[in-house]
Design a binder for these strands. Structure first.
Lengths: 145, 145
DNA sequence: GGTGAGCTCAAGGTTAACTTTAACCTTCGG
DNA sequence: CCGAAGGTTAAAGTTAACCTTGAGCTCACC
């Protein structure tokens, strides 16, 4: 099948499919005599797997190392390990989310229970001073490569 | 206090603090005669608030609209609304995470329960065919601006 | 044989949140 | 008086995951 059909059937933009190929993530592709890409049925499965895995928090980089040449060559051990690691990741994230939520709710409560007779400035100070009593938590945003 | 001290006390890189100022997020700053930045105590509080809020999922853009001129001028209504909206966001994310986790666990189970007498290729097919029976879920990654 | 849809490629653009670099002041301790 | 430590700026670089653009094939149909 050509790229347009594959795009239709997976719901992905053609540019995205080409992009996946360019980074070595999708190797299930041949060329017709005219230069057009030609995909086998399996490609639909694999692309769906990729987007699903992505939603589970896998980066394209991770996926590239997990889905090597053709999918009949999966390394079960490595795969299982990674899947389990990702479950751990999700659980950690769940933890952090729950924390953030608690934090936010406490903050909302704090603001709502404003004595109503004190001014904004004082209230702001009161609220601010109640925040950040939690742990420092060394910035998890960008790792230092 | 100068930027170095502020950086120390907040644990942020000085470049980051300057960056926040450049995007109009941190306005609590004056200049000394020599051109050096000079911060009041409050700046520590505000920066901590910013990083905490960031961890709760607020973008710098959102924070800029939430923390206007000086923090004694908070708009309680708007603020509360936004906080509550963010709690909703977190809950939605929790939902999706739980889903992903369920998905992953099912997948792990599926792979582990491999009959052990069938080969990789067949197993791969079997596993793949069991996936993506869930809903399509139109790609939540990048909104079309 | 023309035209419009679909394909190709390379290259540059986008977004968020910073960091890095380079070139140049200022302050402090010895 | 010198050098190191710390400040300033503007501009460019980084990362992930794509999208857009432009110029040029190719194919199917009338």
């Amino acid at each position: 099948m050509k790229i347009g059909e594959l795009a239709q059937r997976t719901g992905l933009a053609a540019s995205r499919i080409r992009f996946y190929e360019s980074i070595g993530l999708l190797k299930l592709v041949e060329r017709q005599a005219n230069g057009y890409r030609s995909y086998p049925e399996q490609a639909v499965l694999v692309l769906n797997l990729i987007t699903t895995a992505q939603q589970a928090g896998f980066s394209l980089d991770e996926l590239r190392t997990l889905l090597p040449q053709d999918l009949s060559q999966w390394e079960h051990g490595k795969l299982l390990d990674t899947l389990q690691a990702k479950v751990k990741d999700i659980e950690a994230l769940e933890q952090r989310l729950a924390q953030s939520k608690t934090h936010l709710l406490a903050l909302i409560d704090e603001i709502e229970s404003k004595p109503d007779d004190i001014d904004c400035a004082s209230n702001a100070k009161r609220v601010l001073s109640k925040m950040n009593l939690s742990e420092p938590s060394e910035t998890p945003k960008r790792a230092k490569k």
